[in-house]
Write a protein that binds this DNA or RNA. Structure first.
Length: 503
RNA sequence: GAUCUGUUAGCUCAGUCGGUAGAGCAACGGCCUUUUAAGCCGUGGGCCUUGGGUUCGAGUCCCAAACAGAUCACCA
């Protein structure tokens, strides 16, 4: 703390003046809050008699002082409410210092105060708490941005610089009410999903974040080191293999909400740590999983938004089931007019070149088809759509398709042009699984940094026998973006990763 | 990682052709017993992101760096 602004110095001086009045600017005792701002706003018009003695606490956000009377705004966890203070009612004796000195002079915007009083409506129709007693609860030493909303709902002096908002999220939360709403919806999303899973009897579990082998996905990991064991460890890129081991162990349904860590680029849809939910259900296949996912999303989103719809940019997304199902080949046919089925690698390359898709020599047929899909189809999948049946090369943990040669039983759920969920009929044939890992090893030898690592312990688990199982992963951050209408992942993370600022 | 844009008071932003830095809010002082975007009147407040350069003179022009945003690449 090298340089203090004029306003910061003044607040520190006020802190000492409060002490010199014999008042503790950071009191210890609990304050007996019995009401929130929203309770009064919701209930006063119906039952005003319930609001003759309300005790509120929160931040002082605005002072309008008119001599012996003053209006102020109090912000608590439910929002703002106006309060009214009258000098001679607050200070009936000769000593007017509580009003004149403590409130008028030494209370700054941002300070925490507690009040007791009764609710009434002013001549201008504003619901207000008439203060009978006033208590100082905590001093704020930094000035807050002062954001005002006028009668037309127009915001003045908005605090909107993304860097400032993300680096000081607490200020963002204090000053921008819409930010809180996003995180409340995020919490509800996780809570309602958890309830849906629990109601079906599936078990919430926790698996290791620190892993000696980073399996279960194709991505570059963060590396760390355990000192006592003197061994390298990785932060998990996925929890898939551990969850399947629990299915081997005899649970019929397990799920985990948790952070995954990927050492890759950051942008408005990627943060190095992100939250996923993965769920594995025994004796099911990917067709069953599609039905479960659309049922769950319809119910959960209706509970959160009060409707199955969500507006994102220009698109109104409807989450009502059933969702459209298209195989990857059908989707490519529909959006490009090109049929990839039965085509040779050379024919696929010619098509890619005609569409100006960038290629490199290492790409096989599966990767080429994936490129075509990613470049030409994804952006068109606005309403919830299941894309099914992927080329086997890209998907080492999924079971070969029951009837289509060269494909696996996999679906991804696309919404608003982005992948939201990924699911398989899980591969439970340990011999096949070993071969698939070995194929990945060959990719790694050719320099693919994201190729999956062979996990001997996982293979051994499969050798003990895993029931037929379907598994699913959903990106919670991206789903939150969809239901809150946000287009940047940073808006749905309290503390998105930022570069450190050099002093 | 690439390209473009931005960084000026606590906050939101102006700043013309290169000539000693501006507004509103916030702060400070005064007046004021139901106001409301900010009650009224007045006053103070600046490492113009950082470092170089051009120039008699740089917030402004040039070069570099830091951080951020947008677009792209990679991924979920």
């Amino acid at each position: 703390m090298s340089h203090l602004s004029e306003q910061e110095i003044i607040r520190r001086n006020y802190l000492e003046e409060i002490r010199s009045m014999g008042i503790d600017p950071y009191p210890h005792a609990a304050f007996p809050v019995n009401m929130h701002a929203a309770d009064i706003k919701d209930g006063f018009a119906i039952n005003p008699e319930n609001f003759t003695s309300v005790t509120l606490a929160g931040r002082l956000m605005m002072k309008r002082i008119m001599g012996k009377a003053a209006f102020a705004e109090l912000l608590d966890c439910t929002g703002k409410i106006q309060i009214y203070l009258n000098r001679d009612e607050l200070c009936p004796t000769e000593d007017k210092s509580l009003y004149n000195t403590l409130f008028k002079k030494l209370c700054d915007i941002g300070d925490f105060i507690g009040i007791e009083g009764y609710a009434f409506t002013t001549q201008t129709g504003e619901l207000t708490v008439h203060v009978r007693s006033f208590h100082f609860l905590a001093k704020s030493l930094h000035p807050l941005p002062v954001v005002k909303v006028d009668a037309d709902g127009k915001v003045h002096d908005a605090f909107l610089d993304p860097e400032a908002r993300y680096r000081k999220r607490y200020v963002d939360l204090i000053v921008n009410p819409f930010v809180k709403d996003i995180f409340v919806k995020r919490a509800k999303l996780i809570s309602y999903m958890r309830r849906y899973f629990d109601d079906h009897g599936w078990l919430e579990v926790e698996t290791p974040v620190l892993q000696s082998i980073h399996g279960g996905a194709a991505a570059r990991p963060f590396k760390t080191h355990h000192n006592a064991l003197d061994m390298p460890l990785f932060l998990r890129i996925a929890n898939e293999l551990y969850l399947k081991k629990l299915i081997v162990g005899g649970f019929d349904g397990v799920y985990e909400f948790g952070k995954m860590f990927r050492n890759e680029g950051m942008d408005r849809t990627h943060n190095p740590e992100f939250t996923s939910v993965e769920i594995y259900i025994a004796y099911k296949d990917y067709i069953w999983m599609m039905e479960m996912v659309e049922d769950m999303l319809e119910k959960v989103i209706a509970q959160i938004n009060g409707t199955c719809e969500s507006q994102i940019g220009d698109n109104l997304i409807n989450f009502r089931k059933p969702y459209r199902r298209l195989s990857m080949f059908e989707a490519i046919q529909e959006y490009t007019g090109f049929n990839v089925e039965g085509k040779s690698e050379e024919e696929l390359r010619i098509f890619c070149k005609s569409k100006h898709i960038e290629l490199d020599d290492s790409m096989g047929k599966g990767k080429l088809i994936d490129e075509i899909f990613g470049e030409l189809v994804e952006e068109h999948l606005i309403q919830p759509t299941y894309i099914t049946d992927y080329p086997i090369e890209m998907t080492p943990l999924a079971k070969k398709h029951r009837s289509k040669e060269g494909l696996v039983e996999r679906f991804e759920l696309y919404i608003n042009g982005k992948e939201i969920a990924n699911a398989y009929t899980e591969l439970n044939d340990p011999i096949d699984q070993r071969q698939r890992f070995e194929d990945q090893l060959r990719l790694a030898e050719r320099g693919d940094e994201e190729a999956m690592v062979l996990d001997e312990d996982f293979l051994q688990a499969l050798e003990y026998g895993m029931p037929p199982t379907s598994g699913l992963g959903i990106g919670i951050d991206r789903l939150t973006m969809l239901i809150t209408g946000q287009e940047a992942i940073q808006e749905v993370l309290f503390f998105p990763q930022m570069k450190s600022v050099k002093e």
